[in-house]
Measured scan of single mutants.
Amino acid sequence: GATAVSEWTEYKTADGKTYYYNNRTEESTWEKPQELK
Results as ranks from 00 to 15, higher is better:
G1R: 09
G1H: 13
A2V: 13
A2S: 14
A2I: 13
T3M: 13
T3V: 12
T3S: 14
T3F: 09
A4E: 13
A4M: 14
V5R: 08
V5S: 12
V5T: 12
V5F: 13
S6A: 11
S6G: 11
E7G: 09
E7R: 03
E7H: 07
E7A: 07
E7I: 08
E7F: 09
W8H: 00
W8R: 01
T9R: 11
T9W: 09
T9V: 15
T9A: 10
E10L: 05
E10W: 05
E10G: 01
Y11M: 15
Y11Q: 09
Y11H: 12
K12H: 10
K12V: 13
K12Q: 10
T13D: 12
A14L: 10
A14G: 06
A14R: 07
A14F: 04
D15P: 00
D15M: 05
D15L: 04
D15S: 09
D15Y: 06
D15I: 03
G16T: 00
G16P: 00
G16E: 02
G16Q: 02
K17M: 07
K17F: 07
K17P: 01
K17I: 09
T18M: 05
T18Q: 04
T18E: 04
T18C: 10
T18L: 10
Y19G: 04
Y19S: 01
Y19P: 01
Y20G: 00
Y20R: 00
Y20V: 00
Y21K: 09
Y21Q: 03
Y21G: 02
Y21A: 01
N22P: 00
N23D: 08
N23L: 10
N23H: 15
N23P: 08
N23Y: 12
R24K: 11
R24F: 14
R24A: 09
R24G: 05
R24E: 08
R24T: 10
T25P: 01
T25F: 02
T25D: 01
T25V: 01
T25Y: 02
T25H: 01
E27Q: 10
E27T: 06
E27A: 05
S28K: 15
S28P: 03
S28F: 15
S28N: 06
T29W: 05
T29V: 13
T29H: 05
T29P: 01
W30E: 07
W30H: 07
W30P: 06
E31K: 06
E31T: 10
E31N: 07
E31V: 11
E31W: 06
E31L: 09
E31M: 07
K32E: 08
P33S: 01
P33A: 02
Q34D: 15
Q34R: 08
Q34G: 10
Q34A: 15
Q34E: 15
E35K: 04
E35G: 10
E35F: 07
E35P: 06
L36E: 07
L36I: 09
L36P: 04
L36K: 04
L36N: 06
K37A: 13
K37P: 10
K37N: 14
